[in-house]
Design a protein around this nucleic acid. Structure first.
Lengths: 252, 252
DNA sequence: GATGGTTTCAAACGATTGTTTTAAACGGTT
DNA sequence: AACCGTTTAAAACAATCGTTTGAAACCATC
């Protein structure tokens, strides 16, 4: 009845189509709203820790010290709150890295920075930590906002990585090979983040602390990538492996 | 009241401690039980597809065409049924690969086989497909049986992989470096399985079919691994990356 | 065919989920 | 101070979860 003002319908909006005339003041008014902001701020880390499905709205409300009905009133939906969290991540990322240009550097240093940033943000639980962990959960178990996230957040970083790899390979690798190498890097990083529970069981404790911390992992990933790229023998190996596979298939 | 016979308490047994006198005939009797077997057979793929949490016991019962109370009667618990599924996976694996010896081969061929097997079982949804996918889900979101799975199922395969890598490197790599390479391989494989939803968005459709199918992925992973191992320059690269990281940390 | 243990079934249980309701409290304007 | 739209709060909503119940069906044995 009297709840017309906010309550964005979370199922209808796909993109951020904020451009209406009254939207400006509306948004400004909301920003001064303490409970909405408190809920939004608390929802991020909570979603990141347990994932969308395993978080209850009562948990979110308790974490923000607001009433449970607040999520329905301000965001319409649990999914609406989640979308708002995603949007806040994106806008914050754009503001912090307006242009990802630490350009004209040594591409090897740039690759090291990319991997280091990725792994550090995945590992630690500081301000930017929960953001990356939330995005990680989106890969593991996609929600309705998955495709949006990939296109808006992941793709730019992915292309930045590919561009760096292109400089590194000195155009000896084809486009799809660059993509493969990039995916390998991202895959190793995500695995060290999501699979740490298994790693800590498989690896002996003393090695775990000294050789499998974030720094050592960065060193290994970057070093093996550089070694495989610049050895110049990948093509020969690929030919050999292909023959192996064909032989195995015949033997079957 | 009258439900004494089966109903194993799922919370108490951690290991497979089947050795009691009457357990033999009891187990034999159960094996002839159609509903128990039907439930167990249907639960595997269902758990694999949606994960433990997102599967309802009514779903499991409907899939097996049995009553919902059957899971409580035969397995005591939803988690008890899950444990039985895990146990069935382990026993089947032991029976199929009693000794993982396709030994005395070219270690490069053996590595190719390992990666190929891993990726094929992850990708396809045949008989062995759901098993691997269920184990994958366990990594992404561990259940109370996680540690048991890692020690009993994952560790043997992991050590087999490391042994192969040791032969490949001709003892030029230290133990922890072998572990790092092994984790990189496993990480890339799991990423190509779990992250395919993202890959299919990031990669252009024509390349996706031709260059990112299972075969091409196997070729790339094995080839880049061999190239990085046998280039002999990893140590130099590691030294360089370490200096990069220290420089970055100072600049901050 | 009656008996007693074993297995199946429909129904219901208590707990928890996301969401909605209804009224009270708030805050600026006249 | 009275008004009115906006925001908060406690309670209830319907739906669904895992699990349990109690009686019916089954089945070999006497």
């Amino acid at each position: 009845m009297t709840k017309s003002p906010p309550k964005t319908a979370s199922t209808t909006l796909e993109q951020d189509s904020i451009g209406l005339p009254s939207a400006e003041e509306d948004h400004a008014r909301r920003r001064r709203n303490p409970t909405r902001e408190r809920l939004l701020a608390a929802a991020g880390p909570t979603f990141a820790q347990s994932g969308f499905d395993h978080v209850t709205v009562r948990e979110l409300a308790a974490q923000a010290e607001v009433n449970v009905a607040a999520v329905g009133y301000h965001f319409g939906d649990k999914l609406g709150l989640y979308r708002a969290v995603i949007e806040s991540i994106r806008s914050r990322k754009d503001r912090r890295f307006p242009t990802p240009d630490n350009a004209e550097q040594d591409p090897r240093k740039r690759l090291t920075q990319i991997v280091s940033n990725l792994l550090c943000r995945m590992a630690s639980s500081d301000e930017t930590g929960w953001e990356t962990q939330l995005l990680l959960r989106e890969i593991q178990r996609p929600t309705p906002v998955f495709e949006h996230i990939v296109r808006v957040i992941f793709r730019p970083q992915f292309e930045h990585l590919i561009e760096t790899l292109r400089e590194l390979s000195q155009s000896e690798l084809q486009a799809h090979q660059l993509e493969q190498v990039a995916l390998s890097i991202v895959g190793q990083c995500t695995y060290h983040a999501t699979g740490y529970g298994m790693i800590s069981i498989l690896i002996t404790p003393e090695n775990l602390e000294t050789k499998f911390n974030t720094n050592s992992t960065v060193v290994h990933i970057v070093a093996s990538t550089l070694a495989s790229i610049q050895s110049g023998t990948i093509q020969d190996y690929e030919q050999m492996i292909t023959e192996f596979l064909e032989a195995t298939r015949k033997n079957r």
